[in-house]
Design a protein around this nucleic acid. Sequence first.
DNA 1: ATCGTTTATCGTAAATATACGATGAATGGT
DNA 2: ACCATTCATCGTATATTTACGATAAACGAT
Lengths: 108, 108
Amino acid sequence: MKSKDKFFTAMIHSNDTELFAAMCKALGHPARVMIINYLKKIDRCLCGDIVELLPLAQSTVSQHLKCLKDAGLIKGEVEGPKTCYCLDKKMLEKFTLMVDALNKSSQA
Amino acid sequence: MKSKDKFFTAMIHSNDTELFAAMCKALGHPARVMIINYLKKIDRCLCGDIVELLPLAQSTVSQHLKCLKDAGLIKGEVEGPKTCYCLDKKMLEKFTLMVDALNKSSQA
DNA sequence: ATCGTTTATCGTAAATATACGATGAATGGT
DNA sequence: ACCATTCATCGTATATTTACGATAAACGAT
């Protein structure tokens, strides 16, 4: 019987699996990790602040910010021509819980 | 002064940042998340077991396993023609600690 | 109304990731 | 020695990511 396990074949596209993978993927680039760490430190900032910080063009930074926003890890609030970014702490907490679960459930 | 912040320009390639990003990147695909979850459940398994589980070709699964192994998240032990995979729990714990740090240090 | 500032988006080139089938390497069993 | 099994790797096609410069859009200030 080579019919694959239906449970896992379905699970691979389950919401949790996809969500978790998407968040990990968003954090899977050094520049985006830096952005998260920076936001953790200063709470909120503009795109331009990050452009000053990282050796990347403005358009590239904007792209990375979009990536993090799409994954739900940060929020962006438009303020006139500027956009103020901050961490989405609920999402980060959810991510943390998911990662913790990875470790713990061996000894359930 | 548009000289970028030297600290951050260096940090983006720091060991921790790169390591963390690499681990996240490895977890940034649903199939690989499934593999980790599966290994968490059954402790150790062969490549073929995962091929049965996921709707992917053997070569693709092997590639995903290599990806996880390169990131240090799993270990592979060759046993004759077979390879027995298991989680690298120390690495997973390190990863968990890094993620936890992401959340906590706001209220230091 | 025009200008400067800030950011997102477009177009695009180069690199990387993802998937597959085919093949090769390792070994256990006959 | 030979065959079957298991897995990694190669070759390859396609898709995605990453980076940039150029441009457009949104506003605040003059």
